[in-house]
Simulated assay, not measured.
Amino acid sequence: MAETTFEDAFMDIQTGLVSLVLEALEGSGGVARVFIFGAIEGGMTSFNACAELAGRIERLDALVADRRVLFQVMGLGSKDLAELETICAQHGRACPTQLYGRYVAGGGYDARYVYEPMATRAVDPVAPGAAFSAWLDALWAGRDPLA
């Protein structure tokens, strides 16, 4: 069996995160895009997501009615991000401190990675929740930095 490359393992984590969100939204009908956000810094991980349905982008917590399912998704997403950190360390690669991913139904996946400290920087730290909210605000304003 062929050895998994770093790139394959790195993408597998992101594919799993998108699948996790799609599974949580199963039955919601017509998911056009899924946006995933991850923060990995200072020994902590944070995961969040939003999706576009019927032309509107909504936070995952507004789309998933069952709180148990929502907390399960967030926990599994954070666990996957911790695995991403492990994969980067095993391959001697820098791990992104933030990950912004966009999956377009039938059109593929794009991502942007930040490698500089964000939450732990000494001047103007940006908490993961604030970074996700700022991205969501940009998406709501029609500015998708990944488009």
Score class of each variant (00 low, 15 high):
Ser28Phe: 06
Arg121Asp: 12
Ala9Trp: 02
Glu52Ser: 11
Ala94Asp: 12
Ser28Thr: 14
Gly30Asp: 11
Met1Asn: 03
Ala111Ile: 04
Gly16Arg: 02
Gln90Asn: 14
Val34Cys: 06
Pro96Tyr: 02
Glu3Met: 11
Leu60Gln: 09
Asp144Glu: 15
Met74Glu: 07
Val126Phe: 01
Ala94Arg: 09
Arg68Gly: 13
Ala130Phe: 13
Ala82Asp: 10
Ile87Met: 03
Glu7Ala: 07
Ala9Arg: 12
Ser133Arg: 12
Glu23Ile: 10
Ala62Pro: 06
Leu76Ser: 04
Met118Asn: 06
Leu25Tyr: 03
Ser133Leu: 15
Val114His: 07
Arg143Glu: 15
Ala62Trp: 09
Glu116Ile: 09
Gly27Ile: 05
Gly129Lys: 15
Cys88Arg: 02
Ala65Pro: 06
Ala89Met: 08
Val64Ser: 02
Gly92Ile: 10
Leu60Arg: 04
Val69Gly: 03
Ala130Met: 10
His91Tyr: 08
Thr97Phe: 06
His91Ser: 07
Ala131Thr: 05
Ala94Glu: 14
Arg56Ile: 08
Cys88Trp: 02
Ala82His: 09
Gln90His: 07
Tyr103Thr: 01
Asp61Arg: 02
Val64Ala: 06
Asp80Gly: 09
Leu81Ser: 07
Leu53Ile: 14
Leu136Trp: 14
Ser19Glu: 11
Gly16Lys: 03
Val18Gln: 01
Ser78Ala: 10
Ser78Asn: 10
Phe37Arg: 02
Glu85Thr: 10
Leu53Met: 07
Ala82Lys: 15
Ala89Gly: 11
Tyr100Val: 00
Val31Trp: 11
Ala111Pro: 06
Tyr103Phe: 15
